[in-house]
Structures are given as C-alpha cells and as structure tokens.
C-alpha cells in the first residue's frame, strides 16, 4: 500500500524534446483525423506555428521517460492494483515540435478512503508543472491514482 508519509515529495524533473512524428503517432493511435496534428501545412493554415501537441499529449513524456513507474515504485504503490481515477490538464500555451519541455512531478495529496462496500483504497494526487526551453509555463497535469488494497 502507498506510503502516505511521501505527501509533498517533489521528484527530479524529466526533460523531453517534442517531435512532430510523436504528435502525429499519438493522433493516429487515438484515431483522430484532425489534420492539425498530422500535417504541418494544415496546422499553419489554421493559424498554428506547426502541428500542436493534442490535449492528452503530455501523457507521452511522463510514460516514455519511465518517470511514472519510478514514482509509483517510490510511493510503494502496488502497480497491479492501481487504477487511474482522474486526469486533468491546464493549458497555458501551445506545445510545438522542437520544444524541449521539462516536467517536475510532485505528490500533492495522499489519503486513505473507504468505499461504500467497505474496501479501503489509497488516493494519490500527483501534479506535474511543465515549462519549455524558454522557462515559460506551458501546462499543468494533475493525476489521481487509486490503489485498491
């Protein structure tokens, strides 16, 4: 079960270079035909500098940098018993290919809850603030993980 004493822990940042191909690959995997994610010319025609990162793109650096598994491990959460409860993003500005973004994960809340059926679970809230290569805030992600016990 989760080590509730870890609340407030800030982890070392991850840094990730955003690639046009990865933005397109995520859109293709979702099956999103919106050309702004697939084709630079189409994106420019709609007023973007390049193909913008889609609404859920920020899951990519967190997973591919192996950060989320490492954090889950450090929090002593049983990976097999984790459910993704909630996910929320705040967008401060567009993320484009070539941007180098840095995300610093922080555990902002940990609590044990009891469900109506009487089973106990640990609720862990993580926030990641992302900045770009110019030090500007680009987005914030908040995830609620639920560990069944």
């Amino acid at each position: 079960m989760a080590d509730l004493s870890k609340v407030g822990t800030e982890y070392s940042p991850i840094t990730w270079e955003v690639e046009r191909g990865k933005i397109r690959e995520l859109a293709k995997a979702i099956g999103d035909p919106n050309p702004i994610y697939l084709d630079k010319d189409a994106a420019v025609a709609e007023g973007y500098k390049d193909t913008p990162a889609s609404l859920t793109f920020l899951t990519v650096p967190m997973m591919w940098a192996d950060k989320m598994p490492a954090v889950i491990n450090d929090l002593k959460i049983n990976f097999m018993m984790v459910l993704h409860g909630e996910e929320e993003y705040e967008y401060y500005q567009s993320i484009y290919p070539g941007d180098v973004i840095t995300g610093t994960p922080k555990v902002t809340k940990m609590e044990e809850k009891t469900s109506k059926s009487g089973s106990k679970m640990d609720m862990v809230t993580m926030e990641v603030l992302y900045t770009n290569q110019r030090g500007e805030k680009v987005a914030k992600a908040r995830s609620l993980l639920v560990e069944r016990k």
Binding site: L26, A29, I30, G31, D32, N34, I36, E46, G47, Y48, P52, S54, L55, T56, E86, E87, E88, Y89, E90, Y91, S94, R142
Partner: peptide, 21 residues
Amino acid sequence: GIVGQAITGWIPRKDLKKFGV
C-alpha cells in the same frame, strides 16, 4: 484522447484552457 478528439473537432485546439476527466 477520444473525448479530446471530439472537443478539438469542434473548438480549435488553441482555444482550450482546461480539460479534465
């Protein structure tokens, strides 16, 4: 992501400020 597809198929991506599920 599929919900996101529905959203930015309607409202331009650049106008989005928050999205949570």
